[in-house]
Design a protein around this nucleic acid. Structure first.
Length: 208
DNA sequence: CACAGGATCGTT
DNA sequence: ACGATCCTGTGT
């Protein structure tokens, strides 16, 4: 009906069925759509399997992390600090516990609605942070397990190519083992203010 | 710009 | 108890 996002093609299921590191990088520039709102992804983090002590799946299967063990292309959403709904996209092979966290985006469509869901704010502070992205999309736990490759509800659509890519360590995982805490598994679009914790990022050696 | 503290609740 | 966080207030 009202979905002006549909001019871009849906990202197919096969896109997600690869290593979280590959998917995290390629998600940059793609557009998350829900109703009138479209958000162009500018920052992601990969949570890998099996060797990642920062992963919610590190302790094995629990009620919360159930979606991460399922098929790729579905949403894993969890409540952080009792307040924020964090959006992850499940990646890899079914039975692996891996996903990509969407950490930041820039508004592509529906800025009015985004601002209304974000206290009327303007500028990069609107969408630079995973809790902010969840709020801007109006997400809650009802979107857990949702298939992003199907039209309707929450969708991922093809966007515009990105230029150079920034890489750096993931945020908020000080508890992880050093080799995982310091691993450059965070990715961001270079040259845009719509990215969080930019200080810890550097230009990636091998960018197009 | 940097840092401290509170909010708030499902998960472990 | 503790978060893959955010916002506000205070100080440089």
């Amino acid at each position: 009906m009202a979905g002006g996002c549909s001019v871009e093609s849906l990202v197919p299921r096969s896109f997600y069925s690869r290593d979280a590191l590959v998917v995290a990088r390629e998600l940059l520039g793609m557009v998350l759509c829900r109703g009138e709102v479209g958000l162009r992804i500018t920052e992601t983090e990969a949570y890998r399997w099996p060797d990642d002590s920062a992963n919610h799946c590190r302790m094995g299967r629990t009620a919360r992390n159930t979606p991460m063990w399922g098929p790729a292309g579905h949403a894993y959403i969890y409540l952080c600090y009792g307040i924020h709904h964090m959006l992850n996209l499940v990646t890899g092979r079914e039975g692996d516990g891996e996903a990509v966290l969407i950490r930041a985006a820039e508004p592509a469509r529906g800025l009015r609605i985004v601002r209304s869901r974000r206290r009327g704010l303007s500028g990069p502070g609107l969408l630079t942070g995973p809790g902010k992205v969840g709020a801007a999309l109006g997400l809650d736990l009802g979107f857990n397990h949702h298939a992003l490759y199907q039209a309707g509800g929450l969708e991922l659509r093809q966007g515009t190519p990105v230029g150079q890519v920034l890489v750096g360590p993931r945020v908020g995982i000080a508890y992880a083992r050093p080799e995982h805490r310091d691993a450059p598994w965070r990715f961001a679009v270079a040259g845009t203010p719509w990215v969080s914790h930019r200080r810890a990022l550097r230009l990636d050696g091998r960018t197009p």
